[in-house]
Design a protein around this nucleic acid. Structure first.
Length: 220
DNA sequence: ATGACGATTTACT
DNA sequence: GTAAATCGTCATA
């Protein structure tokens, strides 16, 4: 894809201050931004962020840092804003978050779905390589889920702790020069896959680009 | 050392 | 709708 192709909006790297806010605000402003993965081979994979979830830290029963839990695994959630927090779960899946707030405040935003933009062919190959899928893979399922997008963009624990604002980083986020989405273009609902979190499970901390077809199930 | 669990995905009934 | 796949992580001992 050419640098200023009509398919990709005009972009600029998100600066530190973009991430240094509460996780609900960041979850909303990340919608429409582009997650870019620079492969070691030099190839560029990217997709527009179309679905996110906010995790509010020590008070949030659904958060990995609930009750100030601090372990080697979740250390990146405590790091400065704009740090990648990649964790491994269910014995086979990776999920990617972006830390928010400030250093020492363990809040983050989970990236749940992307609309693929660059490197679709490589994404398809990566998605087939890891999984045990037998049926054909539609483009709208390439990155429709937190573990699916990590598989498609080759994101694993080796990228945990990465500074997304560093120049030339293997992983970074770019924002549209035209600004963030309008409120009416954002769909809101409860977070997915949270057990035993009672009242926190129902809070409206899941956000998606309204009417976008590349989001995960259940649709908002 | 051991055991329970998980911010998921896939296939199948 | 249900269940299996699969193992790092963490709490308990």
């Amino acid at each position: 894809t050419m640098p200023n192709s009509p398919a990709v909006p005009s972009l600029q790297p998100c600066p530190r201050r973009f991430f240094a806010t509460d996780s609900v605000s960041l979850a909303r402003t990340l919608l429409g931004c582009v997650l870019v993965r620079q492969l070691e081979s030099g190839e560029r994979l990217s997709g527009m962020i179309v679905e996110t979830e906010a995790y509010l830290g020590i008070i949030d029963k659904a958060s990995h840092t609930f009750g100030s839990r601090r372990t080697p695994r979740n250390e990146s959630m405590w790091a400065q804003a704009g740090t990648a927090y990649v964790y491994f779960t269910y014995g086979m899946h990776h999920c990617m978050n972006v830390s928010a707030g400030h250093k020492g405040e363990p809040i983050a935003v989970l990236i749940r779905a992307l609309e693929p933009l660059e490197g679709l062919e490589t994404m398809r190959r990566l998605r087939l390589a890891g999984g045990r899928r037998k049926t054909p893979l539609p483009d709208r399922e390439l990155c429709a889920g937190p573990a699916r997008l990590c598989q498609a963009l080759a994101i694993d624990r080796s990228l945990d702790g990465l500074d997304l604002t560093a120049r030339g980083a293997l992983l970074c986020i770019e924002q549209r020069k035209s600004g963030c989405l309008a409120d009416e273009d954002i769909a809101i609902g409860p977070r997915v896959g949270i057990r035993s979190a009672a009242e926190w499970a129902d809070k409206p901390f899941r956000f998606a680009v309204a009417n976008n077809l590349h989001t995960s199930r259940p649709r908002l």
